[in-house]
Design a protein around this nucleic acid. Structure first.
Length: 91
DNA sequence: TCCGTGATTGTTACG
DNA sequence: CGTAACAATCACGGA
């Protein structure tokens, strides 16, 4: 099952839209963009993009720790807006 | 009570 | 300006 995930063109539906939180990949990508491009200034999205995800998991779960840690850390940020969103939401 | 879904997040690079 | 692979997420609402 699973319908075609419509990436981009994210449709808004909430008044304040708490925009959930980032993902471990985003934190990891933040470092990769720095490293990968630093070690592969020639590789472009075509290479980095794919290469990124490949080694992303290539790491060990413990390697994701810092990324995953930030992932939930960022979610924490979203949590605050979420609460405010629900607050301002006011039925 | 329980589940699935949708919405979102950020990178790079280009026309 | 938006899109595209790449991956995670995970909170919310509905039945």
């Amino acid at each position: 099952m699973a319908e075609p995930r419509k990436r981009t063109v994210r449709r808004k539906k909430d008044p304040n839209a708490p925009k959930r939180a980032l993902s471990a990949y985003m934190f990891f990508a933040n470092e990769n963009r720095d490293i990968i491009k630093s070690e592969n200034p020639d590789v472009t999205f075509g290479q980095v993009g794919k290469l990124l995800g490949e080694r992303w998991k290539a790491l060990s779960v413990e390697d994701r720790e810092p990324y995953d840690a930030k992932a939930k850390a960022d979610k924490r940020r979203y949590e605050s807006e979420k609460e405010l969103y629900l607050a301002t939401k006011q039925t």
